[in-house]
């Protein structure tokens, strides 16, 4: 690891101040960032831990029915406390990594990193959630900007994520067995005004919406409605865990299964 300073503020204001330093880096639960630091893939001058700020933690239901999750809320907490409001989201959170990871990893950390194989981006995009930071509110469609790229600026902090709760939803994940990240993950959410399908793990462009499937499912929310729709293998990730063809195939299979499970 490169050398760095460390700060653990207990208010958002102090965190913002700390993050104004050159090469400052926000730190959530550290489940991705710390391995990255160990591999010397990141070199911050100061790490600002967000885990001691009470206002960034917790889950509540807003007056408009949206589910609000604080940026520093752990996966384990989401798995438990979102269950009554948004079961598909809770189920997704409860299947990230393993229990020790879920006890530390946070939704804000996951979204800020935007790993192409992370689970949360699929839920946020399929739900049409809003990512709220200390500077702006960003619609999911604008937030994800490719592998590891987001609408966040330097030192920006995700304070909250607001999820519209769909009428029906399901997340299907094909795990890369060694890391338990998603080799492919598909989140399907059905709202009164339409269906959203978001795919993680598969594309070189990061999480994406499968618009053709959304259109087909909007008319007929059954797996059969997908017919012989398929995503192109071109542009899918090819690595030691799966070829682009395999990932493209899984996108289709998992989408069908998610629809069946949600319906």
């Amino acid at each position: 690891m490169y050398n760095f300073d460390f700060a653990r503020p207990d208010t958002l204001q102090d965190a913002q101040a700390a993050l104004r330093a050159d090469d400052a880096q926000a730190l959530g639960g550290g489940q991705t960032l710390i391995p990255t630091l160990k591999q010397r893939l990141a070199a911050p001058a100061i790490l600002v831990s967000l885990t001691a700020i009470p206002e960034l933690k917790g889950i509540c239901l807003a007056d408009d029915g949206r589910l609000c999750i604080g940026g520093a809320t752990t996966h384990a907490t989401v798995a438990r406390e979102a269950a009554a409001h948004y079961p598909a989201l809770a189920q997704l959170a409860g299947n990230i990594g393993d229990p020790a990871v879920r006890n530390r990893g946070t939704i804000g950390g996951s979204l800020a990193n935007n790993d192409p194989s992370a689970c949360y981006p699929a839920a946020v995009l399929a739900s049409g959630a809003t990512v709220i930071t200390d500077r702006q509110e960003v619609a999911a469609d604008d937030y994800f900007q490719g592998m590891f790229a987001t609408a966040l600026g330097e030192g920006e902090i995700i304070t909250e994520v607001r999820f519209p709760v769909p009428q029906a939803a399901n997340y299907q994940k094909f795990v890369q067995p060694a890391s338990r990240f998603a080799l492919v993950g598909v989140f399907v959410a059905r709202f009164a005004h339409g269906v959203r399908v978001a795919v993680t793990g598969a594309s070189e462009g990061g999480v994406f919406r499968w618009h053709k499937a959304e259109a087909a499912l909007g008319d007929d929310f059954r797996a059969e409605a997908l017919g012989d729709l398929a995503v192109e293998a071109d542009g899918m990730i090819g690595d030691l865990h799966g070829t682009p063809e395999y990932r493209a195939h899984l996108v289709r299979v998992l989408t069908g299964r998610a629809v069946t499970a949600a319906a």
Partner: peptide, 19 residues
């Protein structure tokens, strides 16, 4: 390296002591 942090299990290698 699993240990208990305030009663909850975590990987001690994936967290910094200063946290």
């Amino acid at each position: 390296c699993t240990v208990l942090l305030n009663g909850r299990r975590i990987n001690a290698c994936l967290t910094l002591a200063c946290m």
